[in-house]
Design a protein around this nucleic acid. Structure first.
Length: 935
RNA sequence: GGGUCUGUAGCUCAGUUGGUCAGAGCGCACCCCUGAUAAGGGUGAGGUCGGAGGUUCAAAUCCUCCCAGACCCA
């Protein structure tokens, strides 16, 4: 007789094969069609808010792995906060203005660009940015990121631009803005100032010159060095790799603490840092020399020097920025061409002299070099020095030098009129540092990092001489250069115009419209703002344009480079505007590297393309990798790592599938078993689930997603696959379909599935949604409409049975069974029977109470327990567990196999009607069914 | 060159304030099952905790230096 039909095998349509690449789009379509995100907003209405403010990606290019990580981490945060009972909206944004897009237009339109009017050029930029947004948006959605994709904030929206102007007005009113002359990175090709972020460092070959600055007053020098008369002319030697800045030289800086030597070469006297005398003389080819005297740099302050080719006398000054690692220990100082030079120049009231025009040529009237391009002038400078006898030595040097990130060409420092947000004049630095201390930084070292940047950083140059950006809507007086007295009001007027007509409204504006008869006295500023100001004012702009977003945000979440980027600019604008941080917490993640720890780059060929992963393994596998990786450090990805992740995905998926399969025929509304009637091990399973759930929730709250991955995966493999589901299979399969023992297991599995699907949802969003649809019982349309599973309290009490000890015994028995298996005595554990001899009386009595059910723990056909002292000589000692000895005897069983439950039992055939069945199968097939209390 | 970090088995990660802390899962090898089956179960082999010094009765855990890597800056 065939009893197979009496066995309750798992039954589910939930597919084992994920086929994510094909199936995920269906889920996306469902979310789209049923407006899942919008419905979630309705459902969450009234809950406490959790605002994650999106840092806008730049609207240029296809998304890469870094984007994917960032968006998925945000999505995990938002979804987990939602499941945690918050109203957690997600309004994505895009950063739209700025140089890279201008360049993109220049590149694609070619020469035609030059003919474009600025207005048309901006239109082209706008259209391009929009196309990029649309492309990126599809990719972000495909990752499973849920958000208000139909109403993102884009920084080129007229409303955003107008609000940005309002934010600026407030900052101006608060006294942070000034106009100044300052050396800024200047790209000769852009003809524009560059932000730090627009500069990158590349190797460059530069001339390296040692130049004489002759001492004007030899007697003064002699006195300072404490020597009598000097027999030869003396010079301070400076070392420079930018000879073209020598025309702008205003001083020579020495380190106050360093020692400087007066060295006689026979023909002349040189002044050099003592520790550098040797290398300098060596390269200059001086063979014999005598050190006459030595003093601290501080002693030489104010010494008068002759400029090497101009009729200009410059002083020796002191600066802590001077180093004696290379060069001569004497630094040529041109405040118009260097930040440190500028700063030290302020102190010594040096002139900020800049003879270089925006085109990178010396301006008309520059002696000797008028009209020459700066880098070309290097050679000329060197010739002039030679002629004047002021060149000690010349060579070439390869060093890291600032380059324009777009043009890849060397940039210069050039003093120009720019608009600044001052770090000091209205206490911005102080306020920012104070606010940094109030923010929670994850990981904690982020605080140190941004604080040290904030403490050091110079004033923020917010002006750009470009086209595609939000204007600095200012009028300056033609004679005095002062801002119009009603500037704040005027900006508001401009903001209203921009709100209607976008930024073109400003560029097209006739000043008379706002200034009427004053118009002729004022100049309309043509600069635009640094794009960092755009995104940096999102904390102000977004809440003004989207009702779901409020400020300050609960969290900003970006890559660790944003300590200098968006975290930084946002903090500055927010403190300047409101004197508070724009965020309560900041979370940063690392960058992607390959399995060898190297950064991903095209040249190394180790770049992982997210679209490709999604198209093969699926977004959920990529999401799982993101969750599984500790984002605090670098995040390594390679084919092997992806393979591992995909394998663990399958484990989790199959666990869910098995649970669903066993829930076949279970209706939670009618079939749930009360805790008091549940089988002990089922209650253990629910308890264990509850324990884990607490850990999972805690990990979500502390953003430790990789722990969730570890814990949940372990749960599936060890607790469920390796124990609970393994031993429960027998009961679910063989007891009556509607019997209490089976319903008890189903009740546990039901709660496990309810919990599991929710744990997974923020990470494996597609899979969780898929599982959700196969779960029994009435339920909402989407898993995301729910909060964490509530497990019945009476089921989650700590079990009185010492299950950990039983699990230990189980492992010990498994080791013994393995020996039999390897000896060929048994195959499956059901071929064996086991006798346990325990010294722990409590464990002994518990297991004795299990009675016939004990065998199910080991999945053996029989299992018995006895006091330790009755053990036979050949009993094998199990590994110690809490000082309690256990001895094991396993042997092949001699009983006959029941064809239905496959246990080998002595009572097989006792019932004449079912000659092939064991006793419990008989009762399960047509009797009242077996009882189970423990397993 | 400076700042901020990271470096535990092939992979991903645990290792509280220094004292069973050398762990887990995966992978791998071998075995079993064939009623979760392009599944499932079991056993086992893998690490001188990046390297070298030092502090300590005792260090993966503290200090110094070095090496490798990441981000930011110069």
């Amino acid at each position: 007789m065939d009893y197979k039909h009496t066995i309750n095998l798992p039954q589910t349509d939930f597919p084992m094969k994920a086929d994510l690449a094909r199936r995920e789009p269906d889920t996306l379509k469902r979310w789209e069609e049923s407006q899942t995100y919008a419905k979630l907003r309705e459902i969450a209405k009234g809950r406490p808010k959790f605002i994650l403010q999106d840092g806008p990606p730049y609207a240029n290019g296809a998304i890469h792995l870094g984007h994917a990580i960032n968006k998925v981490l945000k999505d995990i945060v938002v979804k987990s906060r939602s499941m945690d009972g918050f109203d957690a909206p997600y309004v994505p944004g895009w950063d739209c203005h700025g140089l890279p897009i201008e360049h993109q237009i220049e590149k694609t339109r070619g020469k035609e660009v030059k003919a474009l009017a600025p207005r048309e050029f901006r239109q082209a930029c706008r259209e391009y940015a929009m196309s990029q947004i649309n492309g990126q948006r599809e990719d972000f959605k495909r990752l499973g990121v849920m958000g208000d994709w139909d109403r993102p904030y884009i920084t080129m929206a007229p409303k955003y631009e107008a609000e940005q102007l309002r934010a600026f007005a407030q900052i101006l009113r608060n006294g942070h803005v000034y106009k100044g002359l300052k050396p800024v990175h200047w790209c000769l090709d852009c003809r524009s100032a560059l932000a730090e972020a627009e500069v990158e460092y590349e190797d460059k070959v530069s001339p390296a010159l040692d130049v004489r600055f002759a001492v004007k007053d030899p007697q003064d020098l002699a006195k300072r060095f404490g020597v009598s008369a000097l027999k030869s002319p003396a010079s301070v030697i400076i070392w420079t790799t930018t000879p073209w800045t020598l025309p702008a030289n205003q001083a020579v800086a020495l380190g106050p603490e360093f020692r400087y030597s007066l060295v006689d070469t026979g023909s002349e006297l040189l002044i050099l840092a003592s520790s550098l005398v040797e290398p300098v003389l060596k390269r200059a080819g001086v063979e014999t020399s005598t050190r006459i005297a030595e003093v601290e740099g501080a002693k030489l302050e104010g010494l008068k020097l002759q400029h090497p080719f101009y009729e200009r006398v410059v002083p020796v000054i002191l600066g802590d920025h001077v180093t004696i690692e290379d060069g001569t220990g004497a630094v040529h100082t041109a405040p118009g061409h260097g930040v440190e030079d500028f700063e030290i120049g302020q102190k010594y009231k040096l002139e900020v002299y800049n003879p270089v025009g925006s085109d990178g040529r010396f301006v008309t009237g520059t002696p000797l070099f008028e009209g020459e391009r700066v880098f070309d002038a290097n050679k000329h400078v060197s010739e002039v020095l030679k002629e004047r006898g002021t060149l000690l030595h010349e060579t070439k040097l390869t060093h890291r030098y600032a380059h324009c990130w777009r043009h890849k060409t060397p940039v210069i420092y050039r003093a120009t009129a720019q608009w600044f947000i001052s770090m000091e004049q209205a206490g911005l630095r102080k306020g920012a540092l104070r606010e940094i201390a109030k923010v929670k930084w994850v990981p904690g070292w982020g605080e140190n990092r941004i604080a040290s940047m904030m403490a050091e950083r110079p004033d923020w140059c917010i002006s750009r001489q470009r086209v595609w950006g939000v204007p600095l809507p200012l009028f300056t007086h033609k004679a005095t250069g002062e801002l119009h007295p009603r500037t704040v009001e005027l900006i508001e007027a401009v903001a209203r115009l921009v709100e209607e007509g976008g930024i073109d409204a400003w560029f097209d504006l006739d000043p008379a419209e706002l200034l009427s008869q004053e118009a002729s006295e004022y100049e309309k500023v043509n600069d635009i703002m640094d794009v960092w100001f755009d995104s940096g004012s999102a904390h102000h702009c977004v809440p003004q344009m989207h009702e779901d977003v409020t400020a300050p945000a609960d969290l900003y979440l970006e890559g660790s480079d944003q300590h200098r980027g968006w975290f930084h600019s946002s903090l500055l604008t927010s403190v300047a505007q409101h004197d508070r941080a724009p965020y309560k917490a900041v979370l940063t993640h690392g960058f992607t590297i390959d399995e060898k720890g190297r950064k991903m780059s095209k040249s190394l060929g180790n770049v992982v393309v997210p679209q490709k992963v999604i198209g093969t393994l699926g977004a959920d596998v990529l999401r799982l990798w993101i969750a599984a990786t500790d984002y605090a450090n670098e995040m390594a990805l390679s084919d092997e790592i992806l393979k591992r992740v995909a394998e663990s995905y399958r484990r989790i998926r199959n666990t869910a599938r098995f649970l669903l399969g066993n829930l076949d025929g279970f209706d939670p509304a009618t079939d749930k078993v009360p805790a008091s009637e549940m089988v002990e091990v089922d209650r253990w399973a629910v308890w264990r689930t509850q324990q884990l759930q607490e850990e999972v929730i805690a990990a979500y709250r502390s953003y430790q997603f990789h722990l969730i991955y570890q814990k949940v995966h372990n749960f599936c493999s060890v607790d469920l696959g390796g124990f609970y589901l393994d031993i429960t299979k027998d009961r679910v399969y063989t007891t009556g379909k509607k019997s209490l023992p089976r319903r008890s297991a189903q009740t546990a599995m039901f709660y496990i599935a309810e919990a599991l699907v929710r744990w997974l949802a923020p990470i494996l969003s597609f899979t969780a949604e898929e599982i959700w649809r196969y779960m029994p019982g009435a339920r909402s349309e989407s898993v995301f409409f729910n909060t964490w599973a509530e497990l019945p309290r009476e089921m989650t009490h700590q079990p009185s049975i010492n299950w950990p000890a039983i699990l230990n015994l189980r492992s010990a028995v498994a080791r013994e069974l393995e020996k039999l298996r390897n000896a060929g005595s048994i195959g499956a554990p059901l071929d064996a029977e086991v006798d346990l001899y325990l010294s722990s009386s409590s464990l002994l009595s518990v297991l004795q109470s299990f009675g016939e059910e004990l065998r199910f723990v080991f999945i053996t056909s029989a299992a018995r327990v006895h006091p330790a002292d009755t053990r036979p000589a050949d009993a094998v000692a199990a590994e110690e567990a809490e000082g309690n000895g256990a001895w094991i005897v396993v042997k092949p069983t001699t009983s006959v196999k029941c064809v239905r439950c496959w246990h080998k039992r002595p009572d097989v055939g006792h019932d004449a009607r079912h000659p092939e069945l064991c006793g419990r199968c008989v009762t399960n097939v047509e009797g009242p069914g077996e009882q189970r209390r423990f397993t």
